[in-house]
């Protein structure tokens, strides 16, 4: 066998050889760079959270949590905003859950690649991209005005339900699709119908992903401001029913902070919001871990 000639160097102009940096050196540089970017991001995050908690935690006491805001929120607590947040979020999640999870199962298990499914998938993906302010506009014109629900917990909750629907659909569909196909084959091969197979073999493995999606969307509902202020209103009173207007904590924070009513109470509200989000995340993660432990 003839020895093969080495390929000509790309850069060989009059004996000039480009100085090649050793891959190991590049590796070190890149690693250092990536590490520093990541640490910077973490630092920014920590600075935001620590700042809010540092300013907000001293404000929080029992009265702050249980009293109704007085003088536009300058005094008193934020109990009605807490109630508003919980109510609006609950309405949103309870309405969006069946529709979102049902749609996900339809898309993942029953689609046959025909026009109807293409339309459903396209719409679901498009819904995901619509900005919350557009949901707010729609909620205002449809629920508040057209259906005459007024600024209310119900209008806000329904609007948020539509807003979080794509999140639930997408995460649930992902979870259902990631169930190994063998589970379906086993279900069918043991004489199960499609419905029995979905319920008995597919759904249990998808539950943790679905729950994660639902909890994510709870977080989104709690944090949303633009869509809520246009549909649930910003009334300071304690919401008496689903048809009464309400102010959520995010809206309360926004109003307090931008209109300069009370910085202290704004910080306190923000701190509670962050603690709540933190708590939701912890619940989500433990839920996931528990399902993982159970499934294996």
């Amino acid at each position: 066998m003839k020895p093969t000639k080495p390929p000509p160097r790309r850069f060989n102009f009059r004996g000039f050889k480009p100085r090649e940096i050793k891959p190991q050196t590049v590796e070190k540089i890149v690693k250092g760079f990536v590490w520093s970017v990541a640490l910077m991001v973490i630092a920014v995050l920590i600075s935001i959270v620590v700042f809010i908690l540092y300013k907000g935690l001293p404000v929080i006491n029992w009265g702050f949590l249980t009293e109704i805001p007085r003088k536009m929120g300058r005094e008193g607590g934020i109990s009605s905003a807490i109630a508003g947040t919980l109510l609006v979020t609950a309405v949103a999640v309870f309405i969006a859950m069946p529709f979102g999870i049902g749609t996900a199962f339809y898309l993942a298990e029953y689609t046959r690649g025909n026009t109807v499914t293409r339309v459903i998938r396209f719409s679901a993906e498009s819904l995901a991209g619509i900005p919350s302010i557009v949901y707010g506009l729609f909620g205002f014109i449809f629920f508040v005005m057209y259906l005459n629900l007024g600024w209310s917990v119900l209008s806000g909750g329904l609007t948020l339900a539509i807003m979080i629907l794509p999140t639930i659909i997408r995460t649930s569909e992902e979870a259902i699709r990631s169930v190994p196909n063998t589970y379906r084959e086993v279900g069918f091969s043991l004489g199960g119908t499609k419905w029995q197979t979905i319920r008995g073999a597919v759904a249990p493995s998808a539950v943790r992903g679905i729950a994660n999606g639902v909890i994510l969307s709870v977080g989104r509902s709690v944090a949303e401001t633009a869509a809520v202020v246009l549909t649930a209103g910003s009334a300071l009173r304690m919401p008496a029913s689903l048809s009464s207007p309400a102010r959520t904590m995010a809206v309360h924070f926004y109003i307090l902070a931008t209109e300069g009513i009370s910085m202290e109470n704004a910080y306190g509200t923000a701190a509670i919001l962050i603690i709540l989000i933190f708590f939701i995340n912890i619940v989500a993660n433990t839920l996931i871990n528990r399902f993982v432990a159970k499934g294996r």
């Binding site: 995050l45 989104r220 944090a223 401001t225 919001l273 989000i277 933190f278």
Partner: peptide
């Protein structure tokens, strides 16, 4: 990972304020 999750959950108004 949880830090990024938390970052995702913080209300946009809080970012704006910060």
């Amino acid at each position: 990972r949880p830090a990024i999750q938390l970052l995702a959950g913080i209300p946009s108004v809080v970012y704006g304020f910060w």
